[in-house]
Nucleic acid binder design. Structure first.
Lengths: 216, 216
DNA sequence: TATTTAAGATAGTAATACTATTATTTAAAA
DNA sequence: TTTTAAATAATAGTATTACTATCTTAAATA
């Protein structure tokens, strides 16, 4: 994790882990706009000042938990594609991993991956859609996202070494896996999955999109 | 325009038009988070209370100007595709229209379309990425976006009547035309256009994506 | 035992997102 | 023309947010 994101490493103390745990819960339940350090402190049973000793502001905390998620996805991806040779099967794994509501990984006690996935769908783009995106980028806040994008881009190039837009296609897969899910559940007429509301439909749509464009 | 978005119709008075004009300017310059009714009032030369007589809150004002933009795009689209029969040429027009930085339309005195396009790229998704998206949707706040999505979906079906995901592909085109532009300018490693920073590259990428997926 | 360090408790401030009241100007209706 | 209503301007006030500062206590470390 990028140390510029925090003032004190939340992984190193009980209070820190509680900040992460309750942040995920509260952002998931009420959305990022309604999330405040005061509510977070009350939920933990500490004070506002206590939270501020770990994170400068709520935006950095959001970027922190999102970075955590991308790191976890990166790990899941390398784990799940470990022994696979066929790049198009790998790419299918990528699409499925990004589109599927993950189950909570019990090995990470203070992080609920299911809720984190939901947060990414609804709040993920708020990490970079700010007027200080340039500054944040200079401080490497989006490195885990970029790393994942590069990993996926490489798999795309394994499928077709001549494909010209591996990074753009990778970011399209990531963003659309989330956005089509959001639309399916909240603005269904913007999708074609309104009847079933089934993630598998999103996977089918994305697979068709991706494999038709890279096989020229 | 949906009357639930405003308390008093801003098109009907000078103050109203000034609210729209200066909102676009301020949101464009400083981003939506930094935008407040107080700053807006100061910029116009009126009072905070004056702005509140037109709009309940800044979120509704954002949705208003975004709706205005989608209505304008819808008009531009029907105007530009008026005499075109070939649906794939129409679809190319759609991609170009959404991806290109429009010039300011001088017939709309109080609206700067160039700035509005930039606002849509950086702030567009904030209109619906809220925890009250369901309520807003029930009040038809997103109708202009849905209408545009349907129009594009119909053009897609003209190209291939058997294509199964016309709405999802339409929303993908709209969102990616904006997001790839944002990434190109602010997080270039997430795209393949970092060297040229040219919108035409985004158009080429999207055309390849779209036409390869609908021609099965 | 002395000394850092983290946490808890409390207070305070500037800005934000509103609401309310009153006075003044403008414009339409009687 | 006068009356009346509507829009605007001016001012004040509140709850909440997003912080900063300080002081005390508890626990870990040297």
């Amino acid at each position: 994790m990028n140390p510029s994101l925090y003032l004190r490493d939340p992984e190193q103390s009980e209070l820190g882990k509680n900040i992460i745990k309750h942040s995920i819960q509260l952002i998931h339940d009420n959305g990022f706009e309604a999330f405040t350090f005061k509510k977070l402190a009350e939920s933990i049973g500490t004070t506002e000042a206590g939270v501020y000793r770990y994170f400068e502001n709520k935006h950095k905390l959001l970027v922190y938990i999102i970075s955590w998620y991308w790191g976890w996805i990166q790990f899941q991806l390398s784990y799940q594609t470990n022994n696979i040779e066929d790049p198009s099967i790998k790419l299918k794994k990528v699409i499925t991993l990004l589109s599927t509501n993950v189950e909570d990984d019990i090995t990470t006690g203070h992080v609920d991956e299911f809720q984190l996935h939901q947060i990414l769908i609804a709040e993920g783009s708020k990490a970079y859609l700010t007027n200080h995106v340039g500054k944040d980028n200079k401080q490497q806040f989006f490195q885990p996202y970029k790393d994942l994008c590069n990993t996926i881009g490489e798999i795309i190039l394994e499928c077709n070494p001549k494909y010209k837009y591996p990074h753009s296609l990778a970011s399209t897969i990531i963003e659309m896996a989330h956005l089509q899910n959001f639309f399916m559940n909240h603005l269904p007429t913007l999708t074609d999955f309104s009847k079933s509301k089934d993630e598998k439909e999103i996977i089918k749509y994305l697979e068709e999109l991706v494999f038709n464009t890279i096989r020229i």
